[in-house]
Amino acid sequence: MMSISATANSEERSISGAHVLIPGELDLSHGVALYLDAINVSFDGFKAINNLSLTIDAGELRCIIGPNGAGKTTMMDVITGKTRPDSGTAFFGQTFDLTRMREAQIAHAGIGRKFQKPTVFEQHSVFDNLELALKADKSIWGSLFSRRNHEQTERIEELMELIRLQDFCHRPAGLLAHGQKQWLEIGMLLAQEPKLLLLDEPVAGMTDEETERTAELFISLAGKHSLVVVEHDMEFVNSIARKVTVLHEGSVLAEGSMSEVQNDARVIEVYLGR
């Protein structure tokens, strides 16, 4: 258990152990990127998340699996500020109290999210999509008067190459194939330079080859970034997973390596028993 001695909102700087916590700056010094404790969310009496606790280490690649309705998407909603939990704590690093922040603030703090259904700006070109996602001044004055500098252009070109969309630079994103949209969204995520990436079914609709490349990409990202991947494609999970968490009815059912989880009696019952 880590100790929480300061929240993101408080002005004071308090001493915890040997170093100083600075509100508004990401602090991963304890090696924890995401810390969820006793989260509860209910919709009209239906408990979507039930006393969920989860810790993601800095640089970790974690896969989350679970049957439909296990609360995977709702958990992402809580982390990204889209849904406020009824109770519980959610911290990003040691300084950001996620339950008190709005979506844009959380994104700014360094959490990027890819949706289950690929959402890109369909009217904008691939280039514009990436430029909008780029880490930059995102206030209205900034975007009204700022001009794109040379480094930013280079970074966008780099990203386009990475997601293999350099030939579609000026094509409106709405005209891309499904798999390409998935890649574009991943590219936008990377453009944000987040510390924690939440990826909801990233390989749905991708060809085998694309899936393979995605797996490579994710593995190469781990270490520098923390990744949370929600996926139904077990083969894909198997190819990237080091540690797997199984969610069931809103709480953690099992956690461990892929083989451990696969041999867990309760997991087998949930997946096969009914």
Binding site: F43, D44, F46, A48, T73, T74, K82, K117
Partner: peptide, 8 residues
């Protein structure tokens, strides 16, 4: 109506 269906 509440829940996920309402959004998007």
């Amino acid at each position: 109506m509440k829940g996920r269906t309402v959004d998007n």
